[in-house]
Design a protein around this nucleic acid. Structure first.
Lengths: 190, 190
DNA sequence: TGAAAAACTCTACATATGTAGAGAAAATTT
DNA sequence: AAATTTTCTCTACATATGTAGAGTTTTTCA
């Protein structure tokens, strides 16, 4: 596959993620995608003829985006820990988690939409698990590091807490999480 | 409004909730509702001509159902606390929360769908808040009782945690919450 | 440069959906 | 019981959507 073709596929998948966040699964139509992506009508239909497959690929793409962000976060954490100690690193992560709530709102909401959909669409089962795994990976990493494996909160519980807080904030049902709140969660784990 | 008419409206709104859980917002169509409710085609369209309004009313109905369940839970809690002490009551609530994850899966998933939708559909803003409030009310009640207002975990955080755990379980992304896990959350609040 | 292939855009069409309203059935009133 | 109103069911229709493929443009390559 040529790189321009690949690039256009990415443009389309990005548009799908944006639409998932702004209009939900019901708002993801070939025509709406073309418009959101600024491409001629028929484009998304040409690159992804079947909608079911389109959603699967958009999900994998989202998992990749989440993974990249998480990798960056891990690097930042490791560097901060090395320079200023674990305690400062915990604060660093807490700050990142909080700012991520705004910066990656679309990614988060798209993940929630797809996670819900994965429970009822067979073709999304696998990538649904990957989405969850991608979101959990960095948390797992931190818990391991800061608690040295002796965390008294299971990784799933911690991830669920962050997801729950993010969901309420992203949907306007709760206040913006504070750095303090997140840091407290991490520290209460020790 | 006659009671039979009111009864039929409830049948329809119940069907909407079931569909929200099993097929998501995209699966809620007048025709699908009629079939799910076992009513003649055109019924849901007759009782709720506008889909936007149908969703609003289904949301209020869901909030009412959640409220009833929560009231029962509060009564059970109060009785158990009176008979066997607060500690036993905490266990009681933890057990209820866990069994609720299975018994009220549809209600929970419908609430998640509607909460996500309320972030992008203006007409759902108000009822979206009510849905969240209805789900939080009993938690607020318990926290107040068991921590006597000196909880070190804000009500929003506790509610977000339970929602997050429930979401992962309901979508097949996490293990079934255990009584122990929930009880630990409640006790860690003290 | 010109033909062949590939990539893309546009159009068409079958089905699905929201919505309105005609017509039938049931209930109510006289 | 007949008339009238109310309630409900069925049908129709305009629009939206998924999907396929015709036709066009661009690229590749001999």
């Amino acid at each position: 596959m040529s790189s321009t073709k690949q690039a256009r596929r990415v443009v389309i998948l990005d548009a799908v993620i944006k639409l998932l966040a702004s209009r939900g699964l019901e708002g993801v139509t070939h025509r709406a995608i073309d418009e959101a992506a600024g491409l001629p009508q028929g484009s998304s239909s040409y690159y992804f003829p079947k909608k079911a497959q389109l959603l699967v690929e958009a999900s994998w793409h989202l998992a990749e985006l989440l993974g990249k962000d998480c990798d960056e976060l891990q690097v930042g954490f490791a560097e901060t820990a090395a320079k200023h100690g674990v305690d400062a690193a915990v604060d660093y992560v807490a700050r990142e988690v909080v700012s991520y709530a705004d910066n990656a709102r679309d990614l988060f909401l798209a993940r929630m939409e797809l996670t819900l959909a994965s429970a009822r669409r067979e073709e999304l089962t696998d990538v649904g698990e990957e989405l969850t795994a991608a979101a959990r990976r960095p948390i797992e990493f931190f818990l391991q590091l800061i608690s040295d494996g002796r965390s008294n909160m299971p990784i799933e519980t911690c991830a669920a807490l962050i997801d729950g807080i993010s969901l309420m904030y992203a949907t306007g049902q709760g206040p913006k999480p504070t750095t303090n709140q997140i840091a407290t969660v991490f520290r209460s784990i020790l």
